[in-house]
């Protein structure tokens, strides 16, 4: 680290992003925070209700259900997207035939529109003519057939698989770029010492990109807690709230239920829960400060 003799240069470098971020990122969420203490339908005058919205949230069973679902999304994403993304990056970070093709395929789901993803996966999961149930039938696994999205017990898990599928590519690409920063000399030296592939990965590659793996985990947690699009398009949180997550619940309370105050309180809670979860994770994993 360097100490800079002219701190105004730092100021110069930071001022633009900080201003944009403050005005268009922080101020709006502060206004939301303010709304969260109000009763407001968006049309009439607001009235101050103190922490009533928060109390309501804590007594609202749908809110707890959506929090539980959110935590499932976090677990599935961290345990699914990151290992698979990392594995793929390791596999494709070499000169093998067709690497470019496979790399593109790997990233593909990230660029496909959520609408297409949701229509296709809904058809895959459909209980009557769906691809999955047909596949189970023909392979003699008919007893495993489910009404995947229609049964509240399986619906959230069906969604989880789709979510993992959708975002593996994002972490794949992050890891792939991280792998490029590992100095070639390190790996070559290990090769000369006769280190095998596995040995190289465990002792050189992974430690070198440790920071980026942690970054990916934090991104994964924060992204999962904000999950909205896919569920909103695929099930709208149903049937009977069984796939509701905090962001979809917040959205429908705000714009469909016209409870701006309550919706704002929910969004502040999303922020607070994410913060807690991320603080715990970084503590547990012992992130080195940069």
């Amino acid at each position: 680290m360097h100490l800079l003799r002219s701190p105004w240069k730092i100021g110069l470098g930071l001022v633009l992003p900080l201003i944009i971020y403050m005005v268009f990122g922080i101020i709006p969420i502060f206004i939301s925070f303010y709304y969260s203490f109000m009763a407001w339908d968006g049309f009439s005058a607001m009235s101050f209700v103190g922490i009533e919205n928060y109390i309501t949230a804590f007594q609202d069973s749908t809110f707890w259900l959506s929090l539980r679902n959110n935590i499932l999304v976090v677990l599935a994403s961290v345990l699914g997207q990151i290992p698979i993304g990392l594995g793929l990056a390791l596999l494709l970070n070499r000169k093998i035939k067709g690497a470019k093709f496979f790399r593109t395929i790997g990233f593909l789901p990230v660029v496909i529109s959520t609408v297409v993803i949701s229509i296709t996966w809904r058809m895959i999961y459909n209980s009557e003519q769906g691809l999955l149930n047909n596949l189970l039938e023909t392979t003699g696994l008919g007893f495993l057939q489910q009404n995947w999205l229609g049964d509240p017990d399986s619906a959230i898990f069906a969604i989880l698989i789709t979510i993992v599928w959708q975002f593996v590519g994002l972490y794949f690409i992050i890891f792939l770029s991280a792998l490029q920063t590992i100095p070639k000399e390190l790996l070559e030296a290990a090769e000369l010492d006769g280190a095998g592939e596995w040995h190289k990965i465990v002792h050189i590659t992974l430690p070198s990109i440790r920071n980026v793996i942690l970054v990916a985990i934090v991104l994964c947690i924060s992204g999962s807690l904000k999950t909205f699009d896919l569920i909103y398009v695929m099930t709208q949180g149903g049937p009977a709230h069984s796939t509701e997550v905090m962001a979809t619940y917040m959205y429908s309370e705000t714009f469909e239920g016209l409870s701006y105050g309550y919706g704002s309180a929910l969004s502040i809670l999303i922020l607070v829960f994410s913060l807690i979860l991320i603080l715990i994770t970084t503590k547990v994993m012992g992130v080195k400060r940069t």
Partner: peptide, 16 residues
Amino acid sequence: GLLIPIHATLVPMYIL
């Protein structure tokens, strides 16, 4: 900023 759910900011953003 990673943690801000963007749908929460729609109304404030409009007013801003």
